[in-house]
Write a protein that binds this DNA or RNA. Structure first.
Lengths: 140, 140
DNA sequence: TCATTATCAATAATCATTATTATTTAAGTT
DNA sequence: AACTTAAATAATAATGATTATTGATAATGA
């Protein structure tokens, strides 16, 4: 997580984009909105800081953040996209009953599939590792 | 892959559902439609066997197949759902440029995250392991 | 056969996302 | 500090995938 406003501004600038107030608001909302939020949840939180921020702006900036590696997109069963600000490799345990998503740390992608670039010529940019089932709460 | 019509019929019946001619057509179309097709591609192929089959029927039956483990759903960036009839654990290498999806066999989920059920009480039902980047064709 | 119930086709409705357009603004330049 | 201009924004219309609805049809069990 980029903690200070200056860090966020710098990261966005470095990527060749403008550090607008809306972008900072969206990035902060991403963390406030809880675990793996979807766009409307992020928009809800962003609206608290900037009541006039448009939904389209939230969409666009989440896309930008995804491109510059600040967030990870997770395509979802219900047709909505969710966003995970933790871009490190891990498993998302998704409960099929309650929909809750739990992070689970595991061995690295390099250990699971070593040398993808040399073996099959595939250059890794991002990853999304979902395991679906029933969580502990729903089982008990 | 369930190769014979009898095998398909039996699998659907065992799950407590009717083995209608439309279901068999959809299941067969799933394989004919090539690698990781989306719903409209599957519908296109199903229509060749049954010209009156409805898009909604294809949707419903793919959902059913997913529930009974005959197919794996893959939520996608473009908002459409894709279907992978290979339900064994593997990595889907998705190219961000051309959209092509390549399968990559790797070590098992049990080796990556042993005893999920004992460790965190999570009961695994299905999985979707996506690694995105640039494929060999697009890099050269 | 008849009754029951799942499934079906057709299409309308929904909802997430993207495109459009006129306006505003960040950030470099003078 | 004012000027310039491409980039970003707000508001909203358009798109497109998916789901809901409804009346018809067909499988299954009594």
């Amino acid at each position: 997580m980029l903690s200070s406003r200056e860090e966020i501004v710098e990261t966005i600038r470095k990527s060749g984009h403008r550090a607008t107030s809306q972008r900072i608001v969206v990035y902060e909302a991403l963390w406030k909105a809880g675990s793996h939020p979807n766009v409307s949840e992020i928009h809800k939180y962003a609206s608290k800081s900037d009541p006039t921020i448009s939904l389209a702006t939230v969409y666009k900036n989440l896309q930008l953040f995804s491109e510059i590696g600040l967030v990870r997109e997770m395509g979802f069963r219900d047709g909505s996209m969710r966003y995970d600000p933790d871009v490190d490799f891990h498993i998302n345990l998704v409960c099929n009953k309650c929909g809750r998503i739990e992070d689970f740390d595991c061995i690295s992608l390099e250990e699971i599939a070593p040398n993808l670039i040399q073996k099959v010529g595939f250059e890794v940019q991002s990853h999304n590792f979902e395991v679906r089932g029933i969580c502990s709460r729903c089982r008990s």
